[in-house]
Write a protein that binds this DNA or RNA. Structure first.
Lengths: 96, 96
DNA sequence: TATATTTGGTTTATAAAATAAACTGTTTTA
DNA sequence: TAAAACAGTTTATTTTATAAACCAAATATA
Protein backbone atom coordinates (compact mmCIF):
# COMPACT_ATOMS: atom_id res chain seq x y z
CA UNK A 1 0.00 0.00 0.00
CA UNK A 2 2.41 2.67 1.22
CA UNK A 3 6.06 2.35 0.39
CA UNK A 4 8.74 3.21 2.91
CA UNK A 5 10.05 6.74 2.64
CA UNK A 6 13.83 6.78 2.94
CA UNK A 7 14.29 8.75 6.18
CA UNK A 8 17.49 10.23 4.90
CA UNK A 9 15.65 11.95 2.11
CA UNK A 10 12.47 12.63 4.02
CA UNK A 11 13.89 15.78 5.52
CA UNK A 12 13.18 19.19 4.12
CA UNK A 13 16.73 20.41 4.00
CA UNK A 14 18.36 17.19 2.80
CA UNK A 15 15.72 16.85 0.12
CA UNK A 16 16.37 20.41 -1.01
CA UNK A 17 20.09 19.77 -1.19
CA UNK A 18 19.57 16.61 -3.22
CA UNK A 19 17.11 18.41 -5.42
CA UNK A 20 19.67 21.09 -6.15
CA UNK A 21 22.52 18.66 -6.70
CA UNK A 22 20.56 16.47 -9.05
CA UNK A 23 20.19 19.35 -11.47
CA UNK A 24 23.79 20.44 -11.50
CA UNK A 25 27.29 18.99 -11.89
CA UNK A 26 28.52 20.33 -8.59
CA UNK A 27 27.65 22.95 -6.03
CA UNK A 28 29.52 24.51 -3.15
CA UNK A 29 28.48 25.14 0.42
CA UNK A 30 27.75 28.81 -0.15
CA UNK A 31 25.54 28.09 -3.14
CA UNK A 32 23.57 25.45 -1.25
CA UNK A 33 23.23 27.73 1.73
CA UNK A 34 21.85 30.56 -0.38
CA UNK A 35 19.46 28.41 -2.37
CA UNK A 36 18.08 26.54 0.60
CA UNK A 37 18.07 29.43 3.04
CA UNK A 38 19.44 27.12 5.71
CA UNK A 39 21.76 28.11 8.50
CA UNK A 40 25.38 27.07 8.05
CA UNK A 41 25.26 24.73 11.03
CA UNK A 42 22.20 22.90 9.88
CA UNK A 43 23.51 22.65 6.34
CA UNK A 44 26.84 21.34 7.55
CA UNK A 45 25.17 18.58 9.56
CA UNK A 46 22.84 17.53 6.75
CA UNK A 47 25.63 17.50 4.17
CA UNK A 48 27.55 15.19 6.48
CA UNK A 49 24.62 12.81 6.70
CA UNK A 50 24.12 12.70 2.96
CA UNK A 51 27.82 12.17 2.55
CA UNK A 52 27.99 9.36 5.11
CA UNK A 53 25.09 7.67 3.35
CA UNK A 54 27.03 7.85 0.11
CA UNK A 55 24.34 9.93 -1.55
CA UNK A 56 26.75 12.78 -2.23
CA UNK A 57 30.47 13.15 -2.41
CA UNK A 58 32.10 16.08 -0.64
CA UNK A 59 35.38 17.59 -1.62
CA UNK A 60 37.02 20.12 0.67
CA UNK A 61 39.35 22.41 -1.17
CA UNK A 62 40.61 25.93 -0.79
CA UNK A 63 39.97 28.99 -2.90
CA UNK A 64 43.16 30.78 -1.93
CA UNK A 65 43.10 30.25 1.81
CA UNK A 66 39.34 30.31 2.17
CA UNK A 67 37.80 26.87 2.48
CA UNK A 68 35.56 25.69 -0.29
CA UNK A 69 33.29 22.70 0.11
CA UNK A 70 32.17 21.14 -3.12
CA UNK A 71 29.30 18.67 -3.31
CA UNK A 72 28.29 16.28 -6.04
CA UNK A 73 25.49 13.76 -6.14
CA UNK A 74 26.55 10.13 -6.60
CA UNK A 75 24.83 7.47 -8.72
CA UNK A 76 23.51 5.93 -5.48
CA UNK A 77 22.18 9.34 -4.52
CA UNK A 78 20.35 9.64 -7.81
CA UNK A 79 18.91 6.16 -7.41
CA UNK A 80 17.79 6.92 -3.87
CA UNK A 81 16.21 10.17 -4.95
CA UNK A 82 14.32 8.46 -7.75
CA UNK A 83 13.15 5.72 -5.39
CA UNK A 84 12.03 8.33 -2.90
CA UNK A 85 9.99 10.18 -5.50
CA UNK A 86 8.43 6.92 -6.60
CA UNK A 87 7.58 5.98 -3.02
CA UNK A 88 6.11 9.41 -2.37
CA UNK A 89 3.68 8.92 -5.19
CA UNK A 90 2.05 6.07 -3.30
CA UNK A 91 1.01 8.72 -0.78
CA UNK A 92 -0.13 11.36 -3.23
CA UNK A 93 -1.80 9.64 -6.16
CA UNK A 94 -4.80 8.46 -4.22
CA UNK A 95 -7.34 10.64 -5.98
CA UNK A 96 -7.87 10.69 -9.70
CA UNK B 1 12.82 28.46 -4.67
CA UNK B 2 11.76 25.80 -2.19
CA UNK B 3 8.41 26.12 -0.49
CA UNK B 4 7.98 25.27 3.18
CA UNK B 5 6.81 21.72 3.79
CA UNK B 6 4.10 21.69 6.44
CA UNK B 7 5.84 19.75 9.22
CA UNK B 8 2.55 18.23 10.30
CA UNK B 9 2.18 16.52 6.97
CA UNK B 10 5.86 15.84 6.41
CA UNK B 11 5.71 12.67 8.48
CA UNK B 12 5.37 9.27 6.93
CA UNK B 13 2.55 8.07 9.14
CA UNK B 14 0.55 11.27 9.27
CA UNK B 15 0.84 11.62 5.50
CA UNK B 16 -0.37 8.05 5.05
CA UNK B 17 -3.35 8.70 7.31
CA UNK B 18 -4.26 11.86 5.41
CA UNK B 19 -3.77 10.05 2.15
CA UNK B 20 -6.22 7.37 3.23
CA UNK B 21 -8.76 9.80 4.63
CA UNK B 22 -8.76 11.98 1.57
CA UNK B 23 -10.06 9.11 -0.53
CA UNK B 24 -12.80 8.01 1.79
CA UNK B 25 -15.74 9.47 3.73
CA UNK B 26 -14.56 8.15 7.07
CA UNK B 27 -12.24 5.51 8.48
CA UNK B 28 -11.83 3.99 11.89
CA UNK B 29 -8.73 3.35 13.96
CA UNK B 30 -8.53 -0.32 13.04
CA UNK B 31 -8.75 0.39 9.32
CA UNK B 32 -6.04 3.04 9.51
CA UNK B 33 -3.85 0.76 11.57
CA UNK B 34 -4.15 -2.07 9.08
CA UNK B 35 -3.61 0.07 6.02
CA UNK B 36 -0.64 1.96 7.41
CA UNK B 37 0.94 -0.93 9.28
CA UNK B 38 1.61 1.38 12.20
CA UNK B 39 1.62 0.38 15.84
CA UNK B 40 -1.44 1.41 17.82
CA UNK B 41 0.54 3.77 20.02
CA UNK B 42 2.15 5.58 17.17
CA UNK B 43 -1.14 5.85 15.30
CA UNK B 44 -2.90 7.16 18.37
CA UNK B 45 -0.34 9.92 18.82
CA UNK B 46 -0.37 10.95 15.17
CA UNK B 47 -4.16 10.98 14.98
CA UNK B 48 -4.16 13.31 17.98
CA UNK B 49 -1.77 15.67 16.26
CA UNK B 50 -3.79 15.79 13.08
CA UNK B 51 -6.90 16.32 15.12
CA UNK B 52 -5.38 19.12 17.19
CA UNK B 53 -4.29 20.81 13.99
CA UNK B 54 -7.85 20.64 12.72
CA UNK B 55 -6.85 18.53 9.74
CA UNK B 56 -9.13 15.70 10.77
CA UNK B 57 -12.11 15.35 13.04
CA UNK B 58 -12.20 12.41 15.44
CA UNK B 59 -15.36 10.90 16.81
CA UNK B 60 -15.12 8.40 19.61
CA UNK B 61 -18.09 6.11 19.74
CA UNK B 62 -18.78 2.61 20.92
CA UNK B 63 -19.72 -0.47 19.00
CA UNK B 64 -21.42 -2.19 21.88
CA UNK B 65 -18.89 -1.62 24.62
CA UNK B 66 -15.84 -1.75 22.38
CA UNK B 67 -14.47 1.69 21.57
CA UNK B 68 -14.60 2.83 17.99
CA UNK B 69 -12.61 5.80 16.80
CA UNK B 70 -13.84 7.34 13.59
CA UNK B 71 -11.77 9.82 11.61
CA UNK B 72 -12.75 12.20 8.86
CA UNK B 73 -10.66 14.71 6.98
CA UNK B 74 -11.77 18.34 7.28
CA UNK B 75 -11.82 21.01 4.55
CA UNK B 76 -8.73 22.53 6.20
CA UNK B 77 -7.10 19.14 6.07
CA UNK B 78 -7.80 18.82 2.38
CA UNK B 79 -6.44 22.30 1.77
CA UNK B 80 -3.31 21.54 3.76
CA UNK B 81 -2.77 18.28 1.91
CA UNK B 82 -3.13 20.02 -1.45
CA UNK B 83 -0.72 22.74 -0.39
CA UNK B 84 1.74 20.13 0.81
CA UNK B 85 1.63 18.29 -2.50
CA UNK B 86 2.13 21.56 -4.33
CA UNK B 87 5.09 22.48 -2.13
CA UNK B 88 6.64 19.06 -2.59
CA UNK B 89 6.69 19.56 -6.30
CA UNK B 90 9.15 22.40 -5.88
CA UNK B 91 11.57 19.75 -4.61
CA UNK B 92 10.87 17.13 -7.22
CA UNK B 93 10.26 18.88 -10.53
CA UNK B 94 13.79 20.07 -10.98
CA UNK B 95 14.57 17.85 -13.92
CA UNK B 96 12.55 17.75 -17.06
C1' DT C 1 48.43 48.94 12.77
C1' DA C 2 45.29 47.24 15.90
C1' DT C 3 40.56 45.83 15.96
C1' DA C 4 36.25 44.83 14.41
C1' DT C 5 33.53 42.39 10.90
C1' DT C 6 32.70 39.04 7.51
C1' DT C 7 33.42 34.53 5.38
C1' DG C 8 33.18 29.61 5.45
C1' DG C 9 32.54 26.54 7.90
C1' DT C 10 32.34 22.77 12.40
C1' DT C 11 31.00 21.27 16.97
C1' DT C 12 28.01 21.07 20.68
C1' DA C 13 23.64 21.80 22.95
C1' DT C 14 18.66 22.01 22.88
C1' DA C 15 14.07 21.39 21.34
C1' DA C 16 10.94 18.70 18.94
C1' DA C 17 9.50 14.40 16.70
C1' DA C 18 8.87 9.63 15.88
C1' DT C 19 8.45 5.39 17.81
C1' DA C 20 8.11 1.68 21.00
C1' DA C 21 6.98 -0.19 25.37
C1' DA C 22 3.95 -0.50 29.00
C1' DC C 23 -0.55 0.00 30.58
C1' DT C 24 -6.04 0.13 30.85
C1' DG C 25 -10.55 -1.68 30.31
C1' DT C 26 -13.49 -4.68 27.91
C1' DT C 27 -14.53 -8.99 25.49
C1' DT C 28 -14.09 -13.21 23.59
C1' DT C 29 -12.08 -17.89 23.77
C1' DA C 30 -10.33 -22.18 25.85
C1' DT D 1 -12.30 -18.74 35.26
C1' DA D 2 -8.03 -17.88 33.40
C1' DA D 3 -5.87 -16.53 29.26
C1' DA D 4 -5.58 -14.32 25.10
C1' DA D 5 -7.26 -10.62 22.05
C1' DC D 6 -9.23 -5.93 20.93
C1' DA D 7 -9.11 -1.04 20.88
C1' DG D 8 -6.90 2.12 22.31
C1' DT D 9 -4.02 5.68 25.61
C1' DT D 10 -0.04 7.19 28.25
C1' DT D 11 4.62 7.36 29.19
C1' DA D 12 9.36 6.69 28.13
C1' DT D 13 13.11 6.40 24.91
C1' DT D 14 15.49 7.17 20.83
C1' DT D 15 16.22 9.92 16.82
C1' DT D 16 16.01 14.28 14.34
C1' DA D 17 16.16 18.80 13.24
C1' DT D 18 17.77 23.04 14.39
C1' DA D 19 20.09 26.69 16.63
C1' DA D 20 23.73 28.56 19.27
C1' DA D 21 28.38 28.84 20.11
C1' DC D 22 32.68 28.45 18.39
C1' DC D 23 37.08 28.57 15.21
C1' DA D 24 40.48 30.18 11.77
C1' DA D 25 41.38 33.08 8.07
C1' DA D 26 40.44 37.20 5.36
C1' DT D 27 38.93 41.76 4.76
C1' DA D 28 37.44 46.18 5.98
C1' DT D 29 37.75 50.14 9.41
C1' DA D 30 39.49 53.69 12.35
Amino acid sequence: MFKELDPLLHSQLRLAVMSLLIGVEEADFVFLKEKTGATAGNLSVQIDKLSEAGYIRVEKTFAGKMPRTLCRITPEGIAAFDAYVKALKSYLNIRK
